[in-house]
Design a binder for these strands. Structure first.
Length: 446
RNA sequence: CGGGGCGUGGCGCAGCUUGGUAGCGCGACGGUUUUGGGUACCGUAGGUCGUAGGUUCGAAUCCUAUCGCCCCGACCA
């Protein structure tokens, strides 16, 4: 993309309404525009990152054997009357009437709807296990939306629902999600720690929240420092192997890591003193096993191998996709702007032409731009007639992890400069070498 | 939902106490200049001062109502 043809309304000054750094940077980098309290338009740059994150979620869900579908944002109230939650949910649920006076609602979650789909089409143990998920807009009419997309009223979320014939299978589904989520967050450059949590209004027995450590987090967290060093990495996981998946979950949940909701002082004090940490975290996902809460209320049953009809065992699992943009920025920025991890960056690299209009510099930039595209990398080429300082400031603000700087001075020596946004280090090399280096870097983030 | 604050060109703000017909910085646009970290100068455009009503010869300024947004708390993915 040539910047002169893109839509990137960056701001030099901080908008007054934004307090926390991710909100400020998203506004300044031209990623979002608030339309009303807690509701945002996603401008091109923000939309690109949102889609990158969603794509990673899809890839990791598919890897775990889960199946995508799409449910609507608007739901009939009757389904929620069946589960009893229409009355229970309170003011957070946005209730609407259609022209016929029917009660509708903008879905805050989808347990009822997915259970309805299930009971309409599935009746046998032979169809299990089954995991259906979608990524869709949700709405919770928060009393006080704040922190930009981290706590909006409208939010984009992946929610998945598992159906199993018995509790042991359902717990495997739970574990499978934990492992899939671990890899999902790692690919986004995050350290997200699964912590034992409260089940809240969804209800259930087992639940973990995934928290990204950040000073601005809404939850107080208590953890063993060693838990932050665990990584799933590139290890191949057989998601059908219950023991293997359970072993990974044990590895990640044995060390102490809890939110204030479930914090246990005595257990925490058993952690070696030099590894004991208290901090704050941003919740970016949660997994639940809740058994037959909805299937019993809504009559979602299956016939087992021995001929009995039993309510299906269920769980649900969510990732806050839109919230993740805020969380990633909170975890990865400096005083100049955002620093995107390679896995979610909106463009793989930026090209800064230091002397727009100089025939040689222009030609070198064009050629780099094409070479990157040919290698499957998307570049943002700053071809504006701005001074170098302005171009650098924009690139730093929007946070592309790699920048190629092209100017007459370097070209005279046959080199361009490849700069890491994260470390600030620059290396001079030929344009060809810079492209090759970027290809190599991004090969590790596929 | 309790408490507090703010609505003035695209953005950030001043002006309001002590009413007299709107100003600054940034940005945009045009020009000259400059060109390796937000260049300097000159010029141009852009505002029913959130909205409605009231007081007054006269309201951004005072009064009333209303809408919106932000912050703290409670709540929450």
């Amino acid at each position: 993309m040539r910047l002169s043809r893109y839509f990137l309304p960056v701001l030099k000054e901080n908008p007054a309404e934004a307090q926390i750094v991710s909100h400020r940077l998203m506004l300044r980098a031209g990623m979002i525009k608030q339309q009303t309290a807690g509701i945002y338009s996603w401008l091109p740059l923000g939309f690109k990152v949102l889609k990158r994150i969603e794509q990673i979620v899809h890839e990791e869900q598919e890897r775990a054997g889960h199946i995508a579908l799409l449910m609507p944002t608007l739901q009939p109230a009757d389904l929620w009357r069946e589960s009893g939650r229409y009355e229970d949910y309170g003011q957070e649920m946005l209730r609407i009437k259609d022209r016929h006076g029917r009660d509708m609602l903008y879905g805050p979650t989808n347990e009822e709807m997915i259970t309805d789909i299930f009971r309409s089409h599935v009746g046998s143990y032979k169809d299990l296990p089954l995991t259906l998920y979608h990524v869709q807009w949700k709405f919770r009419d928060e009393v006080r939306p704040r922190f930009g997309v981290m706590r909006g009223r409208e939010f984009y979320m992946k929610d998945g629902y598992t159906f199993d014939v018995d509790k042991a299978s359902a717990l495997h589904a739970y574990n499978r999600h934990m492992v899939a989520y671990l890899r999902t967050y790692e690919r986004m450059g995050l350290t997200a720690i699964p912590m034992r949590a409260d089940s809240g209004p969804i209800g259930g027995d087992d639940t973990h929240e995934f928290l990204v450590l950040a000073e601005t987090g809404e939850s107080e967290v208590f953890y063993d420092q060693a838990v932050t060093e665990l990584t799933l990495g590139e290890r191949a996981v057989d998601f059908d192997n219950r023991d293997e998946v359970a072993a990974i979950c044990d590895e990640f949940t044995t060390l102490y890591a809890r939110t204030d909701e479930t914090h246990d002082e005595a257990l925490f004090n058993a952690v070696p003193e030099d590894r004991r940490r208290v901090g704050r975290g941003i919740e970016v996902g949660q997994i639940f096993y809740f058994g037959t809460k909805y299937s019993e209320a809504m009559g979602a049953t299956v016939v087992t191998q021995d001929g009995n009809r039993v309510p299906v065992e269920m769980g649900s699992h969510g990732i806050g996709v839109s919230r993740l943009l805020g969380a990633i920025i909170e975890a990865s920025h400096d005083d100049k702007g955002i620093i995107w991890p390679e896995g979610v960056t909106p463009f793989h690299a930026g090209i800064v032409n230091l002397k727009q209009g100089d025939a040689e510099a222009d030609a070198a930039c064009e050629s780099l731009y094409k070479a990157l595209a040919g290698a499957g990398l998307e570049a943002l080429y700053d071809d504006r007639s701005e001074r170098a300082g302005a171009k650098f400031a924009t690139m730093d603000l929007i946070g592309l992890p790699w920048r190629i700087t092209v100017g007459p001075r370097g070209l005279a020596k046959g080199v361009v400069e490849l700069t890491s946004r994260r470390s600030g280090e620059s290396v001079e090399m030929s344009p060809e070498a810079a492209v090759a280096r970027l290809v190599e870097i991004y090969a590790q983030h596929r």
